[in-house]
Computed example of a mutant assay.
Amino acid sequence: MQELNFPKFSFRFKNNENKVSIFDEIRKKFIVLQPEEWVRQHCVQYLIQHKNYPKSLINVEKELKINGLTKRYDIVVFNSDGSIHLIVECKSYKVKINQTTFDQIARYNLALNASYLMVTNGINHYYCVMDVENKRYDFLKDIPAYK
């Protein structure tokens, strides 16, 4: 797999029927290793190991309904009160991040009302804080660490 613009992490892998899988600490199971999953697992470890977010507040690959359509978010980090702190949209390192990617996470946030957004393809990372009053997001250098 492609080297990503994240710190180095150690992962558990297994090979089954010529498919490599990576262990997801949040879902507690092996997931077939695709380029987007490689990015997602690095991002999860970044949140846990570098931003100190508790595993218990992280959710991965869950469905949500937006305008009657079923969508799946990549990563959501909750606050201890159950509100949503952060939504992360992960793309394959082969995918260029563009306005469509930001539109996607903004649509998700209409339903989820997160304080922060992160978009990453493993190479480029974009961080935003929501300005709810003015219905926009402002870019940040990084997301805040867990308090």
Rank of each mutant, 00 (worst) to 15 (best):
M1Y: 10
M1E: 07
Q2T: 13
E3P: 12
E3G: 05
N5H: 12
F6L: 11
P7S: 11
P7F: 11
F9P: 01
S10C: 10
R12L: 14
F13I: 01
K14C: 13
K14H: 07
N16L: 14
N16R: 07
N16F: 13
N16E: 14
N16V: 14
E17L: 11
N18P: 00
N18G: 02
N18Y: 12
S21N: 01
I22G: 00
I26T: 06
I26S: 04
K28A: 04
K28I: 02
K28L: 01
K28S: 08
I31Y: 02
P35L: 15
P35G: 06
E36F: 06
E36Y: 00
E37C: 02
W38I: 07
V39S: 01
R40E: 01
H42M: 06
H42D: 08
C43T: 11
V44D: 08
L47D: 12
L47A: 08
Q49D: 09
Q49G: 07
H50W: 11
N52D: 15
P54D: 14
K55Y: 10
S56H: 12
S56Y: 13
S56R: 14
L57N: 12
L57I: 12
N59I: 08
V60W: 05
V60A: 04
E61G: 07
L64E: 03
K65W: 08
K65T: 11
K65Y: 08
G68M: 09
G68W: 10
T70K: 14
T70Q: 06
T70G: 05
K71W: 13
R72I: 02
R72M: 00
I75M: 02
V76C: 08
V76H: 00
V77D: 12
V77H: 13
F78S: 12
N79C: 05
N79I: 03
N79S: 08
D81F: 04
G82D: 12
S83L: 11
S83W: 11
S83Q: 11
I84N: 10
H85N: 14
L86N: 02
I87Y: 00
I87D: 00
V88W: 00
V88K: 00
E89I: 00
E89F: 02
S92V: 09
Y93V: 02
Y93M: 05
I97K: 00
Q99K: 15
Q99T: 13
T100Q: 13
T100V: 09
T100M: 06
T101G: 05
T101L: 09
T101R: 01
F102E: 00
F102P: 00
D103P: 08
D103G: 10
N109Y: 02
N109G: 04
N109P: 13
L110H: 07
L110R: 10
A111P: 04
A111Y: 01
A111W: 03
L112I: 13
A114Y: 07
A114H: 03
S115G: 06
M118P: 01
M118E: 03
N121V: 09
G122R: 01
I123Q: 09
H125N: 06
Y126S: 00
Y126W: 04
Y127D: 05
M130K: 13
V132R: 04
V132P: 01
E133T: 10
N134H: 15
K135E: 13
Y137A: 01
D138R: 13
F139H: 11
K141P: 03
K141Y: 05
I143T: 03
I143M: 04
A145N: 14
Y146M: 10
Y146W: 15
